[in-house]
Amino acid sequence: MIMEKLKENITTDSIWNLMEDIYDPEIPVLSIIDLGIIRDVQIDNDNIEVFITPTYSGCPAMDVISLNIRMSLLQNGFTNIKITQQLSPAWTTDWMTPQGKEKLKAYGIAPPVEKSFDQKYLEELKVECPLCHSKNTKVISQFGSTACKALYQCNDCLEPFDYFKCH
C-alpha cells in the first residue's frame, strides 16, 4: 500500500532528486548528478528507464553506479527498472556541474579547467593547485589513480595532487 502511494507521486523530477544521493564510489564527494552522467529518466506507468553515460569506457565505477541506481529505485518501490548505457554524445567534463567542481576542489582534487578537449589546449593547460592555489604546477603523468584523473605536482608547495582531466 505504502509503495503504491509512493509511486503515484513519483515524477521524473523526484527521480532526479533521488539520484543526488547516489555517489561516485571512487570520488565519494561527487553525486552522479554532479558528474553529469545521467542523461535522461523516463517513466511509463510501472516502468522506469534511466540513461547513463560512462565517463571512461573502462571505468569500473560504472557497474557499481548502475547497481546503486537500481537499489535506490527498488527501495522506492520500482520493480521494472531498466538502466541503459548511452554512449553518444560522449561524456565530457563540461557536463560536470559547477557545484561538482567546487566539491572536487574542496576534496583536494583539481577540477577540470574550463572547456574540454583539444590538443593545443592540453599543452597550454594551467592547473591550479587545490591546496595552495598556485598556478605554478607541472604534470607528472597524464594518468592518475583512476581513469579520469591525471597526476600533477605543485612547484610552490611541492604537494602532488590529482587533477580531474578534461575529456
Binding site: 560512462p54 571512461y56 569506457s57 573502462g58 571505468c59 569500473p60 554512449l87 607528472i140 603523468s141 597524464q142 594518468f143 592518475g144 589513480s145 581513469a147 597526476l151
Partner: peptide, 20 residues
C-alpha cells in the same frame, strides 16, 4: 610507479572499449 599506473590505465581503457 607513475608509468605502471599509466600503462594499466591505458589497458583499462582498451578493455573497456572492447566490452562496448
Amino acid at each position: 610507479l607513475e608509468q605502471d599506473i599509466a600503462i594499466s590505465n591505458i589497458a583499462l581503457d582498451l578493455i573497456g572499449q572492447s566490452r562496448n
